[in-house]
Design a protein around this nucleic acid. Structure first.
Length: 1043
RNA sequence: GCGGGCGUGGCGGAACUGGCAGACGCGCGGGACUUAGGAUCCCGUGGGGCAACCCGUGCAGGUUCGAUUCCUGUCGCCCGCACCA
């Protein structure tokens, strides 16, 4: 019927060309009518009586290749949900924009020689065109790109907020840095500076800055960074996979470098804890938790020695309680001061570090402490030091005064972190990372029994090796003895200190106590180097054989000294006993350690946001004033990365921009004269910067006095933040962790109203494709394979059978699908339906072009149900068919329910069932007779609208409406229509289905039982056996247990 | 190795909270309309058996009147982390 004559007869047939024409028509109309424009509170047309729904897509990174089929998967899902929510009476915020700064655009630009601004804008235009062709209901008036100066102006502003803030450990939140400065001014504390310590009032401006940099949330710090020479930039830990760059897979080397960092570690605890208050996939919450990597354990100090017999380095360690201190002050000749005196006399030249935090108390204790200081000074060479690290951690409070004072010897102490302090008695040696300061000290110490050549060589190799190599060689343990010993505080025995690259400087303290009996790595190392192994735990279910480490929990043995015993104690108990003992002795304490490292935020690249910072002649940094933003990215002709042994940012080439004056850059006049010469920061921010807060900007994208209008932010982000955020699981730790961190800083500083940005998160699965595999597991490109009629796949060249397997789409396998092609062949409505019908949104699913025709046929059937293909007139049934009415109610109910739980594949199945039910009795037999009444068609059009908005709009217009179906209310469901008067119930005998009976819906269980036993078919199956038990589940089934 | 998830027809998948396994679609078989169909429409379609009936949710057990669903063990696949002390 599609020959020349019949085509003329059915000009209104739903073909791809027809779909394309109505789709373009309605897209144009929506745009001219501003159908999807969502006004903000206070704007004309805003309806304050409606609840809000903020539904966000992860905005795309526009590449030259255009959209792939993965993009519209999530975007179609959010579009369906948004359209549904609008019809349910919500104010829906559904925006789209462009994540446009970043490495790929720059690499592409370097390759092609076209400026990234040009290629990126072109890619954006292409993406926008493609997205509009899908008929997505974005409010395009809110569109922006992260490369817009009006946008990155505020990215820089947010960075400045972090720069001007510190993390107050007692409040556990970010506070303005001015508060810290005021505190330091007040207390005039002794602070650590390069090469020693000094009073705050005595510090130079540069020294003060160095101290503040240890507290700022955005700070300049020397860090061992991940340097990727191929990419010409450093990378964040999160951007490295298996020792290679996430992008490109190039080797990454470690080197120290001064870089801008984010103090994300300060938020480690809150970033873990708040995962409990968000509705996120379990897998993603787990991943973030593990990435942050909280470990509970203890820090233990080991005193080092030059030889086994050496009593000490002359270090003295003691802990002075306030009560003792008070006693000492009351009676200068009392034991405490005498002891210090004696020790000082016994060891000429001894230096004792006294950690005193009391100076911060500003109370009467201060004078007492200063008195002591005088006394101690009189006794020997004593320096007063404020332990600023501890202060920062909030350890010192007035109530804890009895823990304040202790004499420590930092220089000759190795600190370790352990999760198993209960195994301390089994620590038979120690290992420090090759980068640990002790290694350098051993090399420089002529008195130590160090094999200098070996140690130096080992440290050098380990340091310069890329992490890839380090891992590749991880099979056997290597290491060198440092020549030093340490005293096990529990046993009092000297134990050797080794260095090995299996201990990482970046985790914990960069040193471990090795307990070979109960740690597999330590065991292996001890075996290789013949170190002693001492069992100290009887591990439950793992009897000690000496052949391998037993690492579980159990009961302590061989663990006692004069003061403490762990013998017979279960692991958990033993841990707290030993920690308490260590704490009392002043050589250890409870500690929480995180795997998370501070976030390296500098990149040696051109295509990114410039930092709003410049350096003066002394090298001190100064922030750009907020009113002088944005710091515009200078136009560079040559933006290629500079090849060098050390990272050199390309912005360094913009000499006229880099060399400037304080006034021109916009620095604070109170800090520097306007004419002062300054050098701008030439590093740029990484690609993540723009995506850390774009969801906030959408709330009021044209606001120019603030990063987001306060009112708009409170309205759209109120409650739980973004109500639904859909995007790929590949961002589970990177983007989603960074954005949460920025959001929490902004929350602490009072700029946003929720502590978490994304209340509900959902990951769409990956759309994969089929590929073909030979028997030797090698893959064959799709276009080299034929399918035979019996469903087998044959490689054309060889005639050999190949297996169909699921693989990622890739150019080499020739299985990449371009959305433009599919839309040209079937239309956007079909494309949308197909991707949603493929399977559950969260599952990874293979694209199979052959299957598209299924949903296309559905749309054709739906169209034919409503429209006379010869005339284009609506087909309206004269009378309401009760069965169809019932089916319609059920479909409306099911579709709404399924959209709410993001089960879009089954929602579409319900629509298909409805259309099948309404068309099949009629079929092609009588095309002049419609299957639905006008009222039914009206409701059907509305439930269809979220899925196939173009066809729905066309039908809606045909029904006589003049406004968009997008603004129509969702049809209501009559609950009475969802149940039948009579229910068909299965009857099981011994749990197996044997018969079915029909019972009234209102039947009671006893009615049902009676009806069941009265049924002839049931009686036949019982076959005279006694019925021992009858289980009736009303509305479900009946089960008979017979003897 | 650790953590998270998944195994259901030829294929994609469905099944609420333990209650009729395989909805819906593809493919396939048959038919209709056609000069023709790889378009469209209709009917059928888990396997075995003529049938009554039997067997079926990776495999082996268990709990239960009843298990795709819960438990134990095991095999396979996917994702994440990985010498993290």
């Amino acid at each position: 019927m599609s020959d020349a004559t019949t085509i003329v007869e059915t000009p209104h047939r739903y073909t791809a060309a027809f779909a394309g024409s109505i789709e373009l028509r309605w897209q144009t109309w929506w745009e001219s009518e501003n159908t999807y424009r969502q006004p903000n509170p206070g704007e004309p047309g805003f309806d304050a009586s409606k609840p809000k729904f903020y539904c966000l897509d992860m905005f795309p990174y526009p590449s030259g290749a255009g959209l792939h089929v993965g993009h519209p998967e999530g975007y179609t899902a959010t579009d369906i949900i948004c359209r549904y929510k609008r019809m349910k009476g919500f104010n829906v915020l559904h925006p789209m924009g462009w994540d446009a700064f970043g490495l790929p655009a720059e690499q592409y630009a370097v390759q092609t020689g076209v400026h990234p601004a040009v290629t990126t804008r072109k890619a954006i235009d292409n993406y926008r065109r493609q997205l509009k062709r899908f008929g997505f209901s974005y409010d395009w008036s809110r569109e922006f790109a992260t490369i817009d100066p009006e946008y990155y102006r505020w990215t820089q502003w947010i960075w400045l907020q972090a720069y001007h803030a510190w993390f107050d450990p007692t409040k556990k939140q970010a506070r303005p840095i001015d508060e810290l400065i005021a505190r330091l001014d007040r207390s005039d504390a002794v602070v650590a500076i390069e090469g020693g310590e000094a009073r705050w009032s005595k510090c130079t401006p540069l020294q003060r800055q160095q101290h503040l940099d240890r507290h700022r949330l955005a700070y300049l710090g020397v860090q061992t960074v991940n340097w990727c020479p191929k990419l010409g930039t450093v990378l964040a830990n999160e951007e490295i996979i298996d020792g290679r760059s996430e992008r490109g897979g190039f080797p990454v080397y470690r080197m120290p470098l001064k870089q801008w960092m984010f103090r994300i570690t300060a938020y480690a605890e809150r970033l873990v804890e708040d995962l409990a208050i968000v509705d996120w996939p379990e897998s993603t919450r787990t991943m973030q938790t593990e990435w942050i990597g909280r470990s509970d354990g203890a820090e233990v100090q080991f005193e080092t020695m030059r030889s086994k017999d050496d009593g000490s380095h002359g270090a003295m360690r003691m802990r002075i309680k306030l009560t003792e201190l008070t006693a000492a002050l009351a009676s200068p000749s009392a034991g405490l001061l005498q002891e210090i005196d004696q020790r000082c006399r016994a060891t000429p030249g001894l230096e004792v570090d006294v950690s005193i935090a009391g100076v911060f108390l500003g109370s009467k204790h201060l004078s007492e402490l200063l008195t002591l200081q005088g006394r101690v000074r009189a006794l020997g060479a004593v320096a007063m030091v404020v332990d600023t690290d501890e202060l920062q951690r909030g350890v010192f409070r007035v109530s804890k005064l009895d823990k304040l004072l202790r004499v420590v010897d930092e220089e000759h102490t190795i600190k370790v972190f352990t999760t198993r302090p209960d195994t301390l008695f089994g620590a038979t040696y120690m290992v420090v990372a090759p980068e640990h300061p002790l290694v350098a000290r051993a090399l420089a110490d002529p008195a130590a029994a160090t094999d200098v050549d070996n140690l130096a060589a080992y440290a050098e190799i380990a340091k310069n090796r890329a992490d890839v190599d380090r891992m590749a060689e991880s099979k056997t343990k290597t290491g060198v003895f440092t020549g030093y010993y340490a005293r096990n505080p529990a046993t009092g025995q000297p134990i050797p200190v080794w260095t090995s690259d299996y201990v990482l400087m970046s985790y914990g303290t960069g040193a471990i106590m090795a307990v070979p009996a109960h740690d597999e790595r330590d065991f292996e190392f001890a075996r290789v180097f013949g170190l002693p192994i001492q069992q100290v735990v009887e591990v439950t279910g793992a009897p000690w054989t000496g052949e391998k480490a037993t690492s579980g929990e159990g009961v302590g043995i061989n663990s006692r000294n004069e003061e403490v015993s762990l013998d017979g104690r279960p692991t958990a108990e033993a841990k707290s006993i030993i920690i308490e003992w260590l704490d009392r002795k002043g050589v250890g304490k409870k500690r929480v350690n995180y795997r998370l490292r501070d976030w390296l935020f500098s990149r040696q690249r051109y295509w990114g946001e410039p930092f709003p910072v410049a350096f003066d002649a002394d090298g001190a940094h100064h922030a750009v004033r907020a009113d002088a933003l944005p710091v515009r990215l200078p136009e560079l002709i040559d933006y290629a990365p500079i090849e060098s042994d050390t990272p050199l940012p390309p912005l360094g080439k913009a000499m006229g921009w880099v060399e400037s004056t304080a006034g021109a850059v916009g620095l604070d006049a109170a800090e520097l004269r306007a004419t002062a010469l300054v050098r701008r920061e030439t590093n740029t921010m990484p690609g993540w910067a723009g995506s850390c807060w774009y969801y906030l900007r959408y709330c009021s994208p044209t606001e120019n006095s603030r990063f987001v209008s306060r009112e708009a932010e409170q309205y759209w982000m109120g409650g739980r933040g973004v109500d639904l955020y859909i995007g790929g699981a590949e961002h589970a730790v990177l983007h989603l962790l960074y954005a949460r961190f920025w959001h929490k800083m902004l929350y602490d500083l009072g700029h946003v109203s929720t502590s978490e940005p994304f209340g509900k998160l959902f990951h769409q699965g990956m759309i994969t494709s089929f590929a073909y595999q030979r028997r030797d597991k090698s893959l064959v490109a799709t276009d080299l394979v034929d399918e035979s009629t019996d469903g087998k796949f044959i490689e054309r060249a060889t005639g050999e059978p190949v297996a169909q397997v699921i693989a990622k789409m890739s150019k080499s396998l020739k299985n990449v699908v371009n959305p433009d092609d599919i839309i040209a062949e079937y239309g956007a409505d079909t494309f949308r339906l197909y991707e949603m019908y493929l399977g559950p949104l969260e599952a990874s699913k293979p694209w199979n072009t052959r299957d598209i025709v299924g949903v296309f046929r559905f749309l054709q059937r739906a169209w034919r149900l409503a429209v006379d293909e010869r005339t284009g007139e609506l087909l309206i049934a004269a009378e309401t068919d009760a069965t169809i009415e019932r089916t319609l109610h059920r479909a409306i109910h099911k579709v709404g329910e399924d959209i709410e739980r993001i089960a879009l594949n089954t929602a579409i199945a319900a629509l298909i069932e409805l259309v099948n039910a309404a068309t099949r009795p009629t079929g092609m037999a009588d095309p002049s007779q419609g299957g639905l009444t006008r009222d039914q068609l009206d409701r059907f059009t509305r439930v269809l609208a979220p899925f196939a908005p173009h066809m729905a709009e066309e039908l809606w217009r045909g029904l006589g409406h003049t406004t968009s179906v997008a603004t129509a209310p969702w049809p209501t469901v009559d609950a009475a229509m969802l149940t039948d008067n009579e229910i068909d119930m299965p009857v099981q005998i011994q749990g197996k289905l044997k018969a079915r009976i029909t019972v009234p819906a209102a039947a009671t269980p006893s009615d049902i039982e009676r009806l069941t036993l009265a049924d002839a078919e049931v009686q036949r199956h019982i076959a005279g056996r006694p019925v021992k038990k009858v289980i009736v589940v009303p509305g479900r089934m009946v089960n008979l247990v017979v003897g």
